[in-house]
Nucleic acid binder design. Structure first.
Lengths: 124, 124
DNA sequence: CCCCGTAGGTGCACGCTACACCTAGCGTGC
DNA sequence: GCACGCTAGGTGTAGCGTGCACCTACGGGG
């Protein structure tokens, strides 16, 4: 019963993709969680659940990749704002490297897939 | 203790990436598991464990994406050879579409990341 | 006979993910 | 003042893919 089992032909995003996304957004400008939620959605990740996002931010805070500070809001409850640390910047750089690798593998896959289609029904 | 937690700045490949890779390889030509192991490594996935690969093949067999048949080998034990079904081909096509989406998201990320670098230390 | 290489397979624990659900502050309308 | 809704942050938990370790079986050579 163990092993890959899908009822839909969907491929997920890379594992841990939320982290580099959040680091990137925080690097682009200090902001708070609820705002970052929109940011990651805009980055192309559809339907991100807030729970995972806050957990991710918390984890990165504890690991020292970001630093957080509570700031009162003029309207609504206080918000926790995040800023990137030097270590976080290093990680972002490293993760960008890994993502470039993934990007390369996907390009390879696509090439092979297209070539397969050419073989099946060669264009004029 | 739940939530993302990494000790190394590594991003994994997309979830379920083994499936489309195996479907692609089987589509390129009928072969057996032990051979596909080399195939996926050549596709860019480093260090694939045989266990997961066989489980994946078994699952796709049960789902009807591939069909398997035992064939005796001239030297060594018998091998299970796999061939793609029509349904498998549909899935491969659908997965290629999903992977194209992932590829696009990664491109977006990369653009944003590079632009961030330009802002940090603008080139002449 | 034992060992090595080929080929296929199982058990299990870890960790990310997704879904549901909850608390608390603040402003507005009744 | 109170209910309500919006903003903002947070927890609990089950599922499932993944990685690691380990195992069986066949065939050939020393």
């Amino acid at each position: 019963m163990s092993g890959p089992q899908l009822t839909e032909a969907a491929i997920g995003l890379p594992r841990n993709f939320l982290r580099p996304c959040l680091l990137l957004l925080v690097a682009e400008g200090t902001s708070h969680g609820y705002d970052l939620l929109d940011g990651v959605r805009a980055l192309g990740l559809g339907r991100v659940d807030p729970g995972g996002l806050y957990r991710c931010l918390r984890a990165m805070d504890e690991e020292g990749l970001v630093r957080s500070s509570w700031e009162p809001s003029s309207r609504g409850p206080a918000r926790r704002t995040y800023q990137l640390t030097d270590e976080g910047q290093d990680w972002l750089h490293a993760m960008a490297g890994s993502l470039a690798d993934v990007h390369h593998v996907l390009s390879m896959f696509r090439r092979r897939y297209v070539r397969l289609g050419d073989r099946t029904h060669p264009a004029s």
